[in-house]
Design a binder for these strands. Structure first.
Length: 149
DNA sequence: GCCAACGTTGGC
DNA sequence: GCCAACGTTGGC
């Protein structure tokens, strides 16, 4: 079973929001590389929930994929912040998944700490200027990060 | 197809 | 608020 990492701005959706909701749709991904990773996800896959663009960027917990990729409805909604003018119901290039809460860490594992670990050097998250918001995590990387909780 | 301009992400 | 990285757009 593959592992993943996904970024969310906690102002939009934090791990605690997801804890309260139990489950929600993960939509608004508008980058093809990230979308392709979304499409590779299967129900039951686990991912690290990363808080971005906030005072304490880092990994905040774990969630799971509860529904595999499907057409992202926000791309077709003119009122949505994620509206994609070129998308249509016949041809919607964007995908969403549903996610379910698994665990909120007792502390945020800061990006600065992740960057110090040799075992994570291949993880795009720690690369300077990395903007990829959905990425695979190897079993070794997963274990390394879990040990930091 | 090239590439400059522009927009967005996201850490700091 | 600044700015590096990098994806997208559009003229040519």
């Amino acid at each position: 079973m593959p592992y993943w990492l996904m970024k969310s701005e906690p102002d939009e959706l934090s791990i605690h929001d997801l804890q309260r909701l139990g489950q929600t749709r993960w939509d608004g991904v508008r980058n093809y590389q990230a979308r392709n990773f979304l499409r590779g996800m299967q129900s039951g896959d686990l991912f690290f929930f990363y808080h971005s663009s906030c005072p304490e960027p880092g990994i905040a917990g774990i969630a799971s994929i509860s529904r595999a990729a499907y057409a992202d409805p926000t791309a077709l909604d003119p009122h949505s912040h994620y509206f994609a003018a070129k998308a249509s119901s016949e041809k919607n290039p964007w995908s969403a998944v549903d996610v379910a809460f698994v665990e909120a860490f007792s502390r945020i594992i800061p990006l600065a700490e992740l960057k110090t670990l040799n075992a994570l050097q291949e993880l795009p998250l720690v690369h300077k200027g990395s903007r990829l918001s959905v990425m695979p995590v190897s079993a070794e990387q997963w274990t390394t990060i879990l040990a930091l909780r």
